[in-house]
Design a protein around this nucleic acid. Structure first.
Length: 875
DNA sequence: GAGCACTGC
């Protein structure tokens, strides 16, 4: 597929020569695998590729190679879905327009039918598994909300809970001290009762440590590194573990938190000689901070300067050298590394840590690493996971043995609410006060779903404590969420003053990403916000959903880090037992896979549908991703990667954006497009909008508006910031988050660097915003919407009704044609980041995708711009 | 006239 100008073709061919060189290199690498079949396959692929390339230039030969391909396809048994996709090609190169249109229509029809099916299934999924009660009801009424159909479980619930209650009952307010009685009356008038059927036991003997925690702390400081290492639970298992690794190629390590596996295992392996012959030990982490801090810790333990023998590699920061033999990295980094080293040649051991978190990258890594292990028998694989998932991983890796290492933690008592809570925010407030009045001092952590909830909870708490006045001890309330400015986040780590209690109101950020010391009490309402992506409509939805058992336990565990703790769950034990899923839905099943599919294709994995996934994503997700890549020109009609696609894979952004970046050179505005891309990458958190200064923040934001749309506004923000020499002060004045801007700058630098590598020249043309918008259109022609009645829009692809997001600069202008960056469903279907375009550009940048006919109707109708506005005013 | 849970390349 090729629809760029002839000029580009020359330059492209030169590029393709170099790419071929790299392909050969890749093939050589594959050939060095002892597996003969793999080599032959790669050779075939390369041969086929060249044939196809020739075919593109000479139609006759193309038909010939297509025949060969079809023959090969039969042999290879390409899966039906991929075959369908191939059959539904657009036939760009055919001269007969009618044929093309017919095919196009067929294709659209097919997509529609899949869509309908998908909608059916998603409807079933949408049916609530767990209802959030709407109105606040008191006492026994709480039980009666359950409707007719649920009578049986309702009865079971009661019975089960009664059984549990008889085992243990925990109540607040059992104290009699008179001076505080008044306060209790005030606080406890609506008190929540908790039952305590379960507690997570700690490590045997750890209670003794609990009794004299100060002593152990002092001891710890006195201990030298060697003693600390020996005190870790894993130390006892060192030899046994090494023997198991020796005996088995793949080993699942089931280690609880605090066992020391992340820091110790690489050191053990190093001591055992796995780093001979300049081979490395790799260890992946899901988070940047973890990779850095663990590497620093290990370097300290080995008395080595960080970055020499022990190093880490994360995006924007490579702290390794040629001497590095123990390398910590984020899973995404390793994923990228595969592109340049598809067989992990320089590693002797690869440890995938925190595998149970099931990030998108670890899930892909499983498939890749499993494949490599088949032909690289000398590569050892260690998958470390939490208790619940170990068996599943073992099964995936052909029944690999599981090695258990106990952890070290304090027991946590878990209390369930006796009745479901209608309004969990006010229930949280109530519980916090109950704890504050009745429980010994100790910090408290509350899990809420988002900024808004945290703010209301904060206000309610302040209100209630104000009423109580000096009757109770001081309560310090601190919010934490990712978008909170860093200096305010830092407050949660400050030491609690004596005779006061710290309450941290946190989002999921406190579940894994940051650890607050000295938390004794955890309050868990049982909900979190979760993003899910609908590939049909390419729409994202952020919804409040019940958490899984695994997260519930993770949250509870946060109470037992320094001493025995208590966890209060604002849902019943029955709900926990019967209604919560075991694990959260893995990320791979609810995100846009465009980028992932592109990388896999770039790694030479052609049959994506049959890729070995631990939990396969929905078929539709993959098919849509393939189809989109095809329309963008990253894949040809055989479903193979094109030169354009190979260049796109180099950029760590979504396919549409990388297409936009690569197209920008043609429109002589790559400088601008790089800035826009960087800003879009962090767009969600650029503007800071505190609750008490919303009006100021909004006017500050309006000052950045530019005619044309939001993309140009983002460019304006970046350029203005750059003009002030990246000033912090400027950010404060304009209600802009410095952290996000800094990140945008980092992303921009990286993209500039990578564009150099794929040979895109940086050119600037700020005066001509038409070209900038054309370049955006060249990447995002998939995301076009047309004005319809009442100020709403219809997407061209799905004819879906959407609206411009109220924060957009085009909210009032309502241009006839817009391009949007993403669709989000919140209260309505909104387009986020919209920019005005002209419909004829679509024919210019994506002639294969748009027919003049479907763009005709409204361009010919003389509709003055103000009509849209008038309509919206009427509505 | 309305929101942005959390990571990561």
């Amino acid at each position: 597929m090729d629809y760029d100008s002839d000029e580009d073709r020359k330059e492209r061919d030169a590029f393709s020569e170099r790419v071929k060189e790299r392909d050969k290199e890749h093939t050589r690498k594959v050939a060095s695998r002892s597996d003969k079949n793999a080599y032959e396959e790669a050779a075939k692929r390369l041969k086929l590729q060249t044939e196809k390339d020739r075919g593109r230039l000479i139609p006759k030969l193309r038909i010939e190679s297509r025949r060969q391909y079809l023959k090969k396809r039969k042999e290879d048994k390409v899966t039906e879905l991929e075959q369908d996709l191939i059959d539904d090609e657009y036939l760009f190169e055919e001269d007969e327009l009618t044929e093309r249109e017919r095919k196009n229509r067929e294709f659209q029809k097919k997509v529609l039918t899949i869509e309908k099916e998908f909608e059916k299934t998603s409807e079933i999924e949408k049916a609530p598994r767990y209802r959030i009660p709407e109105a606040s009801k008191k006492g026994e009424d709480r039980y009666e909300e359950v409707d007719e159909n649920e009578k049986v479980p309702h009865y079971e619930q009661k019975k089960w809970e009664q059984d549990q209650m008889s085992s243990a009952v925990f109540r607040f307010g059992a104290k009699n001290r008179e001076d505080e009685q008044k306060a209790y009356d005030l606080i406890l008038e609506n008190q929540i009762e908790f039952v305590n059927p379960i507690n997570i036991s700690g490590t045997p003997g750890i209670e003794d440590e609990d009794k004299k925690p100060q002593l152990t702390e002092k001891q710890k400081r006195k201990m030298n590194i060697e003693e600390t290492k020996k005190s870790l639970p894993i130390y006892k298992y060192r030899d046994e573990l090494l023997r198991a690794i020796e005996d088995h190629q793949v080993l699942i390590i089931e280690g609880e938190t605090g066992s020391g596996k992340t820091t110790q295992i690489p050191q053990y392996l190093h001591e055992a000689g796995y780093t001979k012959d300049k081979k490395k030990i790799g260890c992946t982490q899901p988070r940047r901070v973890a990779a850095m801090s663990v590497a620093a810790r290990v370097a300290e333990e080995m008395s080595i300067k960080l970055g020499n023998e022990v190093g880490y590699s994360i995006r924007f920061e490579d702290c390794t050298s040629e001497r590095t033999i123990i390398k910590y990295m984020t899973d995404g980094t390793l994923h990228r590394e595969f592109l340049s080293e598809p067989d992990l040649e320089s590693y002797s051991v690869m440890i995938i840590d925190e595998a149970h978190e099931r990030t998108l990258h670890t899930d892909i890594l499983f498939g890749l690493v499993k494949d490599i292990a088949r032909f690289r028998k000398d590569l050892k694989l260690l998958i470390s996971s939490a208790t619940l998932d170990a068996a599943k991983f073992s099964e995936f890796f052909d029944d690999a043995p599981i090695f258990r290492i106990p952890g070290r933690r304090f027991p946590v008592n878990i209390y369930y609410s006796q009745a479901p809570e209608a309004d969990y925010v006010s229930a949280c407030v109530q519980t916090i006060l109950q704890i504050h009045v009745t429980q010994p001092l100790g910090d408290c952590l509350v899990f809420l779903t988002g900024q808004e909830e945290i703010e209301t909870c904060h206000e309610l708490l302040q209100e209630r404590t104000k009423k109580l006045g000096s009757l109770v001890k001081e309560l310090i309330v601190l919010p934490v969420y990712a978008n909170l400015p860093t200096d305010m986040q830092a407050k949660i780590f400050e030491r609690t003053p004596p005779n006061a209690r710290k309450v941290v109101l946190a989002t999921n950020i406190a579940e894994t990403s940051l650890t607050i010391d000295n938390i004794i009490y955890v309050i868990d309402p049982g909900f979190c916000k979760q993003n899910s992506y609908n590939p049909r409509t390419s729409m994202e939805t952020l919804t409040i959903v019940p958490i899984s058992k695994a997260s519930a336990n993770q949250r509870a565990g946060r109470a037992g880090r320094v001493a025995a703790g208590k966890c209060f769950r604002l849902y019943t034990a029955w709900v926990y037992k019967n209604e919560l899923e075991d694990n959260p839905v893995p990320e791979i099943q609810r995100v846009n896979l465009g980028n992932v599919v592109l990388i896999l294709k770039a790694l030479g994995i052609n049959n994506i549908i049959n890729f070995d996934f631990l939990d396969p994503p929905p078929h539709e997700s993959l098919v849509i991703a393939l189809e989109q890549l095809y329309a963008l020109g990253a894949l040809n009609h055989h479903g193979d990667l094109t030169k354009l696609g190979r260049r796109m894979a180099e950029l760590p952004v979504d396919p549409m954006m990388s297409k936009m970046l690569l197209a920008s050179e043609k429109y002589k505005c790559s400088e601008e497009i790089v800035s826009i891309s960087a800003m879009l990458n962090v767009n969600s958190s650029i503007f800071y909008r505190p609750k008490d200064k919303q009006i100021h923040a909004d006017t500050a934001r309006k000052n950045f508006h530019v005619p044309g749309g939001d993309h140009l506004m983002l460019l304006n923000v970046y350029n203005q910031w750059a003009e002030t020499d990246f000033s912090i002060q400027w950010c404060y004045e304009n209600f802009i988050q410095y952290r996000s801007m800094k990140r945008a700058r980092d992303v921009r630098d990286q993209l500039v660097n990578l564009l150099g590598r794929v040979e895109v020249d940086l050119v600037s043309n700020i005066s001509d915003n038409v070209n900038i918008r054309k370049a955006i259109t060249a990447g995002f022609f998939y995301h076009v919407a047309k004005l319809s009645k009442g100020g709403s829009y219809k997407t061209v692809k799905h004819n879906q009704t959407v609206e411009i997001h109220p924060s957009s600069s085009l909210r009032e202008a309502l241009p006839r044609w817009v391009i949007y960056h993403e669709l989000v469903f919140t209260t309505k279907e909104y387009m986020r980041q919209t920019t005005e375009i002209e419909s004829k550009w679509l024919l210019e940048v994506a002639p294969h995708y748009y027919k003049s006919k479907e763009l005709e109707d409204s361009t010919n109708t003389k509709m003055p711009k103000t009509v849209g506005k008038a309509n919206s005013e009427l509505g």
